[in-house]
Write a protein that binds this DNA or RNA. Structure first.
Lengths: 204, 204, 204, 204
DNA sequence: ATATAAACGAGACGGTACGTCGGGTCTTTTT
DNA sequence: AAAAAGACCCGACGTACCGTCTCGTTTATAT
C-alpha cells in the first residue's frame, strides 16, 4: 500500500482534466501541521484540516487515504533537514550525533508530534501499521546502518552484532521517550550512548 | 489523577445508597477485553462495551473516566500473573526471564493489546499520558529494579549505571516491538539480552 | 384511576411501619411549584423535584403515579381560594365574577402554570387525559353550574341551552388564552361576557 | 423566528454545495406523521423519525429547529385541503361549514394529532409558543375573518363585535375539544353555532 | 473554437459514536 | 415500614466527524 504519494501522476502519461492544485496540496499539509501543534492529535480531524486549509473534504480524500498519510507527508517534507552523518572516526560520537539530530528535528518541527500521531493511528489500522513497519521505519534506518557498517569496518563493533536488533533498541528508546513526552537531555543522550555501546555489565 | 480505581469505596466508610454492582463491574472488563481481541482497538467503543456487557453507558462513565482506565484495569486484573523473579545468580538469566515473562503475558492475555491501546490513547489525552507515565509505568518497573539492585550487589553491573535510563532502553525495545506487532522470538530475546548487558562495542 | 391522592391511607386502617412523612409530602409540592415558576415546565423533572425537596426519588414515585398528579395536587392545594359565587342577581355579573376570579387565581399562584403543564402532559399520556377530562374538569364546573342553574330559575337563560356545551365554550376561551400565554384584560373579560350572553348576531 | 421553512433556498440565489434532498425532506414528514398516528405524541422522537425515514439525525436538525416545526409542516402540507368558504348568504351556515370542515380535516389527516402536539410542545418552549401565537394561529384565522366581514356587510353582526375575541372563543372551543379528545358531533356543532350567534341569554 | 475530462469549493447525505440527562426500578443504611 | 441515598438499565438527546455524494465552477488536454 502506498500511503503518502499521489496515486499515478508521477508515473502516468499526461492526461486530460484539471491537474492537481499544488496550492491546495501544500495548504492541507500546513493546516494539518498547525492544528496538530495548536490543538493536539485528538483534535486533528479531516473536517478541521479541510476548513483550515480552505479546501473541500473530497480534495483530501482524493489524495490521501487516511490521516496517517498526511502526517507521514508532513514528516517527510520537513525530514530533508536530516542528513547523513559524516565520518567522525568513532561510532560513539556518530551515534551521539544521530540521536541529537533526531531529537532536535522532533523538537523544532511538527514532526515529533506527527510521528507520535502516526504510531497512535497505526494501533487501530492495519494498513497504517504495515506502512509504518515496512516502509516508514526502514527508510529512517538507512542513515544508522551506514554508520554501523562504517564502525564495523573500523572494528569498533562486535562481529556477531545484529544491527537490526540493535536499532530496535535504539529506536525503542526514542519511541518510549517520544510517546511519554520525555525528550532526553544532552546528558541523558550521553549516558544512553554509553549504555548502548558499553552495555550494562562490568565488561570482561 | 486516578484512572483505574473506584473513587473512594475501598477506603471510605460505608454510606447509604445502593452499593456498586460488582457483577456489572466485572462484565464491563470482560466485554472490553473480548471486543478488543475480536474486533481490535479501533472498534472498541464505550457504546459497544456497554451493549456487550448488558450495562448502561452511564454505569461505565460513573466508574471510569475514559477508555484507557478500563484498559488499564484489564491489564491490572490479569497482571497478577507476573511475579517477582527469583534469584538465579546472574543478571543475564534474570533479564532473559523477565523479558520472556512479559512477552508470554502479553501473548496469552488481552493485556498486550490493552497496553498498545493505552499508549495510543495517551497520544491524544494528557490525563491518560500522565497516568501512564507517572503511575502505570513506574509500577511495572519495580520487579526490574529489584533484579538490577541484586545484580549491583553481586557486582555484575557498572558502578555508574543509571537504572532508569537502562529501563527506558529495555522498555523501549518492548514498546517498539509491541507497537509494530513484532513479538520477539526466544533467539531475539537472547541476542537482545547480550546487547543490553555487553553493549554493541567490542569491549575492553 | 386516581391521580392525586395517596393510595390507601385515607381509607385504610392504621398499620405498622413508619407513617407517611408529611414534611416530605409538602416539600415535594413546594419544590415542584418553585421549579415550575423559576425554570418552566420543560425543566420540571422528577429528579429535579426530588433534589430540591431533599427527598429520594422513590418517595415521589411511592405517592404520585406521574408528574401530572403532582401538578394537580398543587392546583388543588391552592384551589381552596376559589369559592362559590354569591347571588348577584344577574348572570352577566356572576360570570364576570367567575372569570375574574379564575384569572386572578391563575395569575397569583403557580396554578396557572401547573394547569398548562397538566394539559400538555395529557397530550402524551392517556391516563392523565382521562383524569383531566373525567375528574379534574367536571370538578371545576360545579361552581359554574350552580350559577347557570340559578340564572335558569331567574329566566335569564334560553330554555334549550346546553350548559355543558356552553361551558366547553367558556373553558375553551380560557384554555386558549392560558395556553398561548395571553391573560385577558378586564375589558376583554367584559366583552367576552357580552359575546357569551348576547351572542355575535344582531339579536331579534 | 421561522420554524417551518427551509432557511433561504426558496428565495435565495443558487449556491454551491449539494442541494437539499427533497426525497429526504418528504420522508421525514411522512415518517413523523406515521409515527404520530401509530404510537402517539409521547413516542414521537427525533431518533425514531430519523430511523423510520431512513435519514441521519443531522439531516433533521439541519432543517427543523425542533419537533414542533416538523409538526407544523405536516399540518401545513395537508392544510391545502382547507379552502375559503363560499358565500352561503348567512353567517350561521358559513360558521357551521367552517367548523365542520376543520373537524373533518383533523379527523381525516394526521393534522389534528399534529396540532395537539404543537400546543403541548409550546408549553415548554417559548420559541414554539411565539411561533404558534404570532404566525400559526393568525394564518388560520384569515378564512374566518373573511366570513365575519362578509356577515358584517350583510348586517348580521353586532356593530360593536370584536372579531378577534369572538375567534378566541370559537378556537377555544375547538382547542378544548381537541385537547381532551372529544370531537363534536354534528348536533353539537349545530348547538354551538346557535350559542355563538345567539348567545346564552334570552335575548331582548 | 469547442468538446471532454478531471480537480476544485461547497455543503448535504446516511451513519456511528460521543457524553449527558432523565426515566423508573432496585438495594443499601438510617430513622 | 418508610425515608434518603444513590447505583442500576435504558432510551433519547443534540453534537461531532466519518466517508460519500452531488452541485456549479475552473482549468487543463484533445478535437
Amino acid at each position: 500500500m502506498r500511503l503518502t504519494d499521489e496515486p499515478q501522476q508521477s508515473i502516468d502519461h499526461i492526461h486530460a482534466g484539471r491537474p492537481r492544485c499544488e496550492k491546495a496540496h501544500g495548504s492541507v499539509l500546513d493546516a494539518a501541521a498547525e492544528l496538530l501543534n495548536e490543538r493536539g492529535y485528538s483534535a486533528l480531524t479531516i473536517e478541521g484540516i479541510a476548513a483550515r486549509a480552505g479546501v473541500g473534504k473530497q480534495t483530501i480524500y482524493r489524495w490521501w487515504p487516511n490521516k496517517a498519510a498526511i502526517l507521514c507527508e508532513i514528516y517527510e517534507r520537513d525530514g530533508c533537514k536530516l542528513h547523513a552523518t559524516p565520518d567522525l572516526g568513532c561510532v560513539e560520537a556518530e551515534i551521539r550525533e544521530l540521536l541529537g539530530n533526531i531529537w532536535a528535528f522532533w523538537r523544532e518541527t511538527a514532526s515529533g508530534q506527527a510521528f507520535r500521531s502516526v504510531i497512535a493511528e497505526a494501533q487501530g489500522d492495519q494498513a497504517v501499521l504495515t506502512h509504518l513497519r515496512d516502509e516508514f521505519i526502514p527508510k529512517r534506518r538507512i542513515h544508522w546502518l551506514v554508520v554501523l557498517e562504517r564502525a564495523q569496518k573500523r572494528g569498533e563493533v562486535r562481529s556477531d552484532a545484529n544491527f537490526n536488533l540493535f536499532l530496535d533498541i535504539v529506536f525503542g528508546f526514542n519511541w518510549h521517550r517520544l510517546l511519554t513526552d520525555q525528550p532526553p537531555t544532552p546528558q541523558e543522550i550521553e549516558s544512553v550512548v554509553k549504555l548502548l555501546i558499553g552495555g550494562l555489565g562490568v565488561g570482561c
